[in-house]
Design a protein around this nucleic acid. Structure first.
Lengths: 344, 344
DNA sequence: CTGAAAGCGCTTACAG
DNA sequence: CTGAAAGCGCTTACAG
């Protein structure tokens, strides 16, 4: 059924070598031969078998995105706005450079050794050329081991031991929180509070740091609550806010938009006027940000920048062996300024 | 660098044939030989090169998910709850049966011929064994052409001409809307309205039908608004509702949860009491459903059921050529009953 | 400018 | 029970 180079060669009246050379743009082939062969190729919808090509040493041009999720809420985390935006950007950017993306889920409770072997096999089977790891895990020593084994990989959201073929992609969360807080100061707010996520997570700690840096600079008072990156925590905080902070705080830097959403929804029931009085900003640029009045300002990972830079680094030396892979890619967050952070 | 069967054969003191037979569980190999060879294989972390295997006729075990998006809001649609839940379920279920998933985006404004050729090439290059198409497009004749060319594919969200190797996956939206409406009747509501999405979309039309069927059965009056599946439309409808339907309607079947969300957020500003008086139910089981009070009941696509059945059908005859591929897979929606549809 | 030949790493009848 | 040999579809020095 499938047409191969032998058939094309026969139809075109040349050898398989020549067919191959036409396809791979060898310089010595005269235009007339090229035209003749290409015509047959197009007529027959011929495509060289990728598996035969890879067997001859051509890179497979497949990159696998490994998404880390916890055991319990696997689907929820996988489906999160963050993961899916990252993934969709990878799919989009990969397409631009002729690569395809495959996706795998890594659950936190899985046996490290099994994960390690599974991914190693995927590399050894040459199913993929390189890998990208997204999301945090409690235990990710297996990534260090993959690095040691020399596979080409990028690690987002985590610092791994960097080896010759691997690198970290680091988003400057502290700077993002710093700039978010500065924005509120700039717009006239004086008493800024931080309501953030799980302090076990690096991003939470960095955001606290950035917030504190700005507040300290302005000689303000540090007021903060840290819980989890959930709407439920935001709702709790709305209750706490009404009891304790109504007079002391005029604005909030939320650790993410989900917390902000919970806070806002609860506050709409408790005391809707508060939402028009205080200023606030979140993180992540959630879809819901534009549904509320005022619309929510948000600091967001530069998905497009990160995915582009990551793919560029991962594919840089796939054809040209001299290209160096960078050791780290640094990325600044982007500010989406909407109404909730403006002057009142 | 990479270890191959020749090396394993040498180390084990057997031929490459025997190594292959051990790997592929040929019956005639005695346990002692198996053990000897497997020991060497494990020691050396040997994995047969997948490209060589496929070249010999073994199926590649890769399925590509093609996600249809419009040109303008490509990322937004790609990232939608529906697409991502479908995708994550495919990734999860595929893993269970040893398949891997790759993902591509198809933009509505792309040249049909180009898409057709690109996907055809992906098949011809044997990069993928089969494909799944998700999401609606205005023009999808290229799928019909792919079907004609004999590729193995599943089409979700759309009816294509079914061929020997392709099939449709159909979610019974009409039944879902019917059951949603019936639930409201069961819980004592009498005047049920429908606020739904774009009537150009099959799902919108089917949901209207199901709603009408139930209302007609109960001798009720059909009251409906159709716009788009967006929060903005929901917000508009809240305004309209307060002006025109406050006295005439005691409950609503929303076309999806996004519309419901817009409606609720707007209503919290206009007249929060309304939300405690009327009953309502949406579609899609959005994350946000549990954030509001009352929590939103929702009718949702049976993602797990669909993905499992689709993968089973797509992989059924990859090893056993006698297995028939079904012509259509039908799926009933699942009811997630929360507070918004209960008796008041 | 073109083609014959070797070889990528595997699997599978076939012979013994 | 095991191995030699052919062949999957391509690419690439090499020879001419």
């Amino acid at each position: 059924m499938a047409i191969n180079s032998t058939k094309i060669a026969k139809l075109a009246g040349v050898s398989r070598s020549t067919v191959s050379k036409v396809i791979n743009n060898y310089p010595d082939i005269p235009q007339s031969t090229k035209d003749k062969v290409m015509a047959i190729i197009n007529e027959n919808n011929y495509k060289p078998n990728i598996y035969a090509q890879v067997l001859k040493g051509i890179a497979p041009k497949v990159i696998c995105i490994y998404i880390h999720v916890s055991y319990k809420d696997a689907m929820k985390e996988f489906n999160s706005h963050y993961m899916m935006t990252m993934l969709s950007n990878f799919v989009y950017e990969a397409e631009q450079i002729g690569y395809s993306i495959s996706v795998e889920m890594v659950r936190a409770n899985e046996d490290q050794k099994k994960i390690l072997e599974k991914i190693t096999n995927t590399f050894l089977e040459k199913r993929i050329e390189s890998a990208v790891f997204i999301g945090q895990t409690s235990d990710d020593t297996y990534i260090d081991e993959l690095v040691k084994r020399g596979f080409k990989l990028a690690s987002i959201d985590r610092s791994v031991d960097v080896g010759g073929n691997s690198f970290n992609v680091i988003t400057d969360d502290a700077d993002g929180a710093y700039r978010a807080t500065e924005l509120l100061y700039k717009n006239g707010y004086k008493n800024i509070m931080h309501i953030g996520g799980d302090l076990k997570k690096l991003s939470s700690r960095s955001r606290v740091k950035g917030y504190e840096k700005s507040v300290t600079k302005h000689g303000g008072q540090i007021i903060k609550l840290n819980g989890t990156y959930t709407a439920e925590f935001g709702q709790e905080c709305a209750d706490i806010f009404c009891k304790e902070y109504l007079d002391k705080v005029d604005s909030i830097v939320f650790g993410n938009d989900t917390i902000a959403t919970g806070f806002i929804i609860r506050m709409m029931q408790l005391d809707p006027q508060v939402l028009n009085k205080i200023g606030y900003i979140g993180f992540d640029d959630d879809v819901i940000d534009t549904l509320f009045t005022p619309t929510i300002s948000s600091m967001v990972v530069d998905f497009k920048g990160i995915t582009k830079a990551t793919l560029q680094a991962l594919t840089a030396n796939s054809e040209d062996k001299d290209q160096e892979i960078p050791h780290e890619i640094h990325s600044k967050m982007l500010l989406i300024e909407r109404d909730s952070s403006s002057k009142r």
